[in-house]
Simulated scan of single mutants.
Amino acid sequence: MIPKSEGVLESSLYVNDVSVSVRFYEKIFGLQVISDFGERGCAMRCGDRQVLLLFKKGGSRHIQSPHDGDGELHLAFAIPASELPAWETWLAENGIVVEEKRKWELGGESVYFRDPDRHLVEIATPGVWSIY
């Protein structure tokens, strides 16, 4: 029998400049730093029980840690459908270029854009997945 899991607790992004990424996620999403790892990175509160980790690319090599990565990754933030127009306005006001808008067959909508490290960020309304 598979042991119980309560879902994803944390996700990591690997960034060139932690302070630039922190400012982006603070300003655009209102996330707050809850733990600072010095030059290695930080943890940001992302929802009630989720954490977004920002690690400096290559910043953990000197301490022999497996926390390192590279490349353009993807993450999605859940938003209420009623907030989608406000989000589109907010992104435009902050000079964020929308790369794609998509309406899904279950009725959900997604808007895609890039963070300072070119990670693909999505805001998604209910109806994107059968479970959301």
Rank of each mutant, 00 (worst) to 15 (best):
M1H: 15
I2E: 14
P3L: 08
K4M: 10
K4I: 11
S5M: 10
S5G: 15
E6P: 05
E6Y: 12
G7Y: 04
V8Q: 13
L9D: 14
E10M: 07
S11Q: 13
S11H: 11
S11N: 13
L13F: 04
L13V: 03
L13I: 02
L13D: 01
Y14C: 04
V15M: 02
V15C: 03
N16Y: 00
N16K: 09
S19I: 00
V20E: 14
V20R: 15
V20D: 12
S21Q: 07
V22L: 09
R23P: 05
R23Y: 05
R23G: 08
R23T: 12
F24T: 06
Y25D: 01
E26P: 04
E26V: 00
K27T: 14
K27R: 15
I28Y: 03
I28A: 04
I28T: 04
F29G: 01
F29C: 05
G30A: 10
L31W: 02
L31I: 07
L31T: 01
Q32L: 04
Q32H: 10
V33A: 10
I34Q: 15
D36V: 04
G38L: 09
E39P: 13
R40T: 02
M44F: 06
R45D: 05
R45G: 11
C46R: 02
C46G: 07
C46K: 03
G47P: 07
G47C: 09
D48R: 13
D48N: 14
R49G: 08
R49T: 09
Q50S: 15
V51P: 01
V51A: 05
V51M: 08
L53C: 13
L54P: 00
F55R: 02
F55G: 01
K57F: 02
G58P: 01
G59T: 01
S60Q: 07
R61C: 10
H62C: 09
H62K: 12
I63D: 08
S65P: 13
P66S: 12
P66R: 13
D68P: 02
D68M: 08
D68I: 02
D70Q: 12
G71M: 05
E72C: 08
E72R: 11
E72W: 08
E72I: 05
L73Y: 07
H74I: 03
L75A: 04
L75P: 00
A76Q: 04
I79K: 07
P80G: 11
P80I: 00
E83T: 02
L84P: 09
E88A: 13
T89N: 14
T89Y: 09
L91N: 05
L91Y: 06
A92L: 10
A92N: 14
E93P: 02
E93T: 13
N94T: 07
N94C: 08
N94R: 11
G95H: 08
G95M: 01
V97T: 15
V98S: 10
E99Y: 06
E100D: 13
K103H: 12
W104C: 04
L106Y: 09
S110D: 09
Y112G: 04
Y112C: 06
R118V: 00
R118D: 13
H119L: 03
H119Q: 06
I123E: 00
I123P: 00
A124T: 10
A124C: 15
A124G: 10
A124S: 14
A124W: 01
T125Q: 05
P126R: 05
P126V: 02
G127H: 04
V128W: 00
V128E: 01
V128G: 00
W129P: 03
I131S: 15
Y132E: 15
